[in-house]
Amino acid sequence: MTASVTAILLAGARPTPDPIAVAAGVAVKPLAPVAGRPMIDYPARALLDHPAVARLIILTQRPDLYAADPATAWLAADPRVRFEAGGQGIASSLLALMEGEGVGYPLLVTTADHVLLDRAMLDQFVGEADGADIAVALVERRTLLARYPQSRRTWLKFRDGWWSGANLFWFGSERAKRVIALWQQVEQDRKKGWKILAAFGPLALIGAALRILTLRGGIARVGRRFGLDARLVAMEKAEACIDADKVEDVALIEAILGNALHRNSSPVRGGGPRSGGGVAPSR
Score class of each variant (00 low, 15 high):
residue 93 S to Y: 03
residue 109 V to D: 00
residue 217 G to D: 00
residue 174 E to P: 07
residue 61 Q to H: 15
residue 43 P to N: 10
residue 141 R to N: 05
residue 153 R to N: 01
residue 154 T to R: 00
residue 195 K to S: 13
residue 200 F to M: 15
residue 37 R to C: 07
residue 57 I to K: 10
residue 256 I to W: 06
residue 4 S to P: 04
residue 101 E to F: 00
residue 195 K to I: 13
residue 117 L to W: 07
residue 158 F to V: 04
residue 117 L to R: 02
residue 4 S to Y: 04
residue 39 M to H: 05
residue 130 D to P: 02
residue 28 V to E: 08
residue 193 G to I: 03
residue 78 D to E: 06
residue 233 V to S: 03
residue 98 M to S: 05
residue 185 Q to S: 09
residue 204 A to F: 08
residue 28 V to H: 01
residue 38 P to V: 03
residue 94 L to Y: 04
residue 6 T to D: 08
residue 277 G to W: 09
residue 203 L to N: 05
residue 61 Q to P: 15
residue 45 R to N: 09
residue 43 P to T: 10
residue 233 V to E: 02
residue 94 L to W: 00
residue 85 A to L: 11
residue 98 M to W: 14
residue 202 P to F: 13
residue 12 G to C: 11
residue 189 D to F: 12
residue 161 G to C: 05
residue 194 W to F: 14
residue 130 D to K: 05
residue 227 G to K: 04
residue 97 L to N: 07
residue 130 D to I: 01
residue 82 R to D: 15
residue 153 R to V: 00
residue 53 V to R: 06
residue 120 A to N: 13
residue 224 R to Q: 07
residue 19 P to M: 02
residue 83 F to I: 15
residue 20 I to C: 00
residue 182 L to H: 10
residue 32 A to S: 12
residue 261 L to Y: 10
residue 200 F to A: 14
residue 254 E to N: 07
residue 109 V to S: 02
residue 209 A to R: 15
residue 240 A to G: 07
residue 271 G to C: 07
residue 35 A to M: 09
residue 58 I to K: 04
residue 103 V to I: 15
residue 260 A to R: 14
residue 96 A to T: 01
residue 133 D to N: 14
residue 56 L to I: 08
residue 208 A to Q: 14
residue 281 P to I: 12
residue 264 N to Y: 06
residue 85 A to I: 10
residue 198 A to G: 01
residue 74 W to Q: 10
residue 130 D to Q: 13
residue 50 H to D: 09
residue 142 R to P: 02
residue 53 V to S: 08
residue 70 P to V: 11
residue 64 D to C: 11
residue 67 A to L: 01
residue 246 K to P: 04
residue 160 D to Q: 12
residue 245 D to W: 11
residue 248 E to M: 03
residue 51 P to V: 01
residue 155 W to P: 05
residue 43 P to C: 13
residue 32 A to E: 09
residue 67 A to T: 05
residue 20 I to F: 08
residue 174 E to V: 06
residue 239 E to K: 03
residue 50 H to M: 12
residue 198 A to I: 00
residue 14 R to T: 15
residue 162 W to L: 00
residue 32 A to T: 04
residue 236 E to D: 13
residue 144 L to T: 10
residue 118 D to F: 02
residue 20 I to G: 11
residue 192 K to F: 11
residue 85 A to R: 13
residue 253 I to T: 09
residue 95 L to P: 03
residue 82 R to T: 06
residue 72 T to Q: 06
residue 265 S to C: 12
residue 270 G to D: 05
residue 190 R to W: 08
residue 194 W to E: 13
residue 111 T to C: 11
residue 67 A to C: 13
residue 125 F to W: 08
residue 137 A to D: 11
residue 131 G to F: 05
residue 25 G to M: 09
residue 178 R to F: 03
residue 45 R to P: 03
residue 171 F to W: 13
residue 207 G to T: 10
residue 250 V to P: 08
residue 30 P to D: 14
residue 186 V to I: 15
residue 138 L to M: 11
residue 164 S to D: 11
residue 223 G to N: 11
residue 213 L to P: 12
residue 226 F to H: 10
residue 36 G to A: 01
residue 31 L to V: 05
residue 221 R to S: 08
residue 220 A to D: 00
residue 197 L to G: 07
residue 276 G to P: 08
residue 156 L to F: 03
residue 141 R to E: 05
residue 22 V to S: 14
residue 42 Y to F: 15
residue 282 S to R: 15
residue 268 V to L: 15
residue 88 Q to Y: 12
residue 200 F to C: 14
residue 268 V to H: 14
residue 4 S to W: 06
